[in-house]
Amino acid sequence: MTVAILDPTNGSIDSASGFVTAPRPAHLEGQTFGIMANGLGDSEIMFDALYARLAGTDGLADVIKVVKPSVAVPPFPEDWDRFVATATVAVTGLGGCGSCSTRSMRDALDLEAAGIPAVCIVHTALVPAVRAMARLVGCPDYPIVTIDYPHNPTGVWTKEEAVALAAEIAPAVRRRLLQAS
């Protein structure tokens, strides 16, 4: 006698497809740089330094920064509206803990869906988790910019370290914002 059982899941995490990223600008000059930060550790110092660096090297015109009200939630609706009305390119993060990294990845993907080129900054320790989020929305190969050890995953950095990290990742962030893949 056979046994028939029911699948308890909501289906494969890889079942979505067809996600389309936002069109990329030719260069960063004149763009408004959006920072969607989750406030993790000292990552805001890095994001501020990243803007300062790219403003100096690439001629960014302005910046808008939203610090979310908790590390692993979407921004408040009014902050989201203000952000997408202003930013023309964006970074999200820090992807440094389990829930905040995956939510920051979702922020980047939501910004792409809203037509804003974006990139999520993620520590290498959290790459499998953010990759799961990308698979879930149908964009498994969505590029990210990573930070590696010896830097602490959760953004517990010195100010000097945070500023140095900004300089280190700036070329990858530029490349990612200008190239869709």
């Binding site: 308890p8 909501n10 995490i13 389990g98 799961a132 879930l136």
Partner: peptide, 18 residues
């Protein structure tokens, strides 16, 4: 089990507990 199977909190994917 609902959290794991339906809400996708699978270790190594969206359950990232150390």
């Amino acid at each position: 089990l609902v959290i794991r199977n339906v809400c996708r909190a699978v270790p190594g994917e969206l359950d990232r507990a150390s």
